[in-house]
Write a protein that binds this DNA or RNA. Structure first.
Lengths: 225, 225
DNA sequence: ACATCCATGTTGCCAGTGTCAACATGGATG
DNA sequence: CATCCATGTTGACACTGGCAACATGGATGT
């Protein structure tokens, strides 16, 4: 269900570690609480939504006191930034995989990236709302947030450039063409998770076919001229 | 301080109103608190963000007790639904204006609608996040929410159909083509207000030119074949 | 070996929030 | 004039984010 499961499964507080030789059932100092808090917060976030995510619930899920997270995150916003940051990293990873999967075929790269983007958003809708939903400040308060985004966008521009050099895409401003591609897929993804499409569309639409259709329209737009 | 002051000044509860000519069935002690609460909430929402909008602050701004809003809205979510509903209505209105502005020119209609969509989102970012941001349930809990959206989407499909009949757009599934158009513009708008574009783009981009470019790419995609 | 430090985790508290119950008010209706 | 009921108020509750003060115990230097 989750795209990136934590490498170590989350332990409930009451559960004792199977380590036999340790007499104290619960060590005072946690393993890496930082990671566990991030994972638990991610889980709770996707289970409900951003509005109903509370630091105290996260702490309870991990099995620590309600202020323990403050030793690892300055405040609630910092924790949210951490979650969003992982989302951006995963986004970048997916894009790179799409490129590697279809070497020397920018057209297929773009299509693959589109499908992976939609899938990633569909599987982590609340995280995406966090990344793009205007809860986090969009100024330079958290510069690390946009770094992965920069990398991803650069990779996208590389696809466009390669496509131009291969004669698959028309010549033109790479920045604008990359933004066109991003906008289409991003818009589709967000419309899907917001429920707008299935509600407004007269007939239910299959996501994969829809993504393909929109990607094709986009490619024809990039092709024309 | 307030952006749009209510047309009738706020009355304290104890203050009596000079019962002059009241021909319409205008109600009770207060003006229409329902409308004033909606306006105040909208203002406070755009001043900060969704997370920091509190019912109590709205009540205080209007000058009533902290539970007065509950006589007009079942709970906080219902108030948010009311705000989002107004947003959808405004969206529909903008689309219709775009159509009327360029009769018999679907291409210009689509371009105009795109610019108006981007502008509307830019001027009411928090409201848009409310409409599409996954805070409100996307099931049928509030069917009235999606009605205006349906109307708007139908209008969009009409543009596409007219364009096809006029030979401006290629033949094809109207639903899919309308979704392509919506996705592009929606994605662009949300990327803009989320700060992703100015952060990731190597050079600052002028919004209007960017919108035009993306609309043109879209139109070429709809044109191809 | 031992004393010390300090990162980590805890308890207790505060203001602020959404929401419910009980009460107050006054215009509309008989 | 009596009554009703929509509207508005007060007070309370559980919950939240966050601060301060305290507790613990692994790492460190001698």
């Amino acid at each position: 269900m989750d795209v990136y499961d934590p490498p170590m499964t989350v332990q409930t507080a009451t559960e004792k570690r199977p380590a036999a030789e340790q007499s104290p059932p619960k060590p005072y100092h946690h393993g890496d609480l930082h990671r566990q808090i991030l994972c638990a917060a991610r889980d709770l976030l996707e289970e409900n939504n951003i509005a109903s995510l509370s630091l105290r619930a996260v702490a309870k899920k991990v099995g620590v006191s309600h202020t323990a997270p403050y030793r690892h995150f300055k405040d609630k916003e910092s924790l949210l930034v951490g979650i969003a940051g992982e989302g951006f990293k995963e986004m970048t990873a997916q894009l790179n995989e799409a490129v590697e999967l279809h070497p020397d075929n920018p057209r297929a790269q773009l299509q693959e990236a589109g499908h992976r983007y939609v899938k990633l958003v569909a599987e982590n809708p609340q995280c995406v709302q966090l990344m793009f939903g205007g809860i986090l400040p969009c100024d330079d308060t958290y510069p690390e947030l946009h770094e992965s985004g920069d990398i991803a966008f650069t990779a996208l521009k590389t696809i466009i450039e390669d496509g131009q050099n291969a004669g698959m895409f028309k010549k033109g401003d790479v920045e604008l063409m990359a933004l066109s591609a991003w906008s289409s897929i991003h818009g589709l993804s967000l419309l899907l998770i917001s429920g707008s499409i299935n509600e407004t569309a007269s007939a239910p639409v299959e996501t994969h076919a829809l993504t393909t259709a929109i990607t094709v329209t986009l490619l024809e737009g990039l092709n024309a001229g």
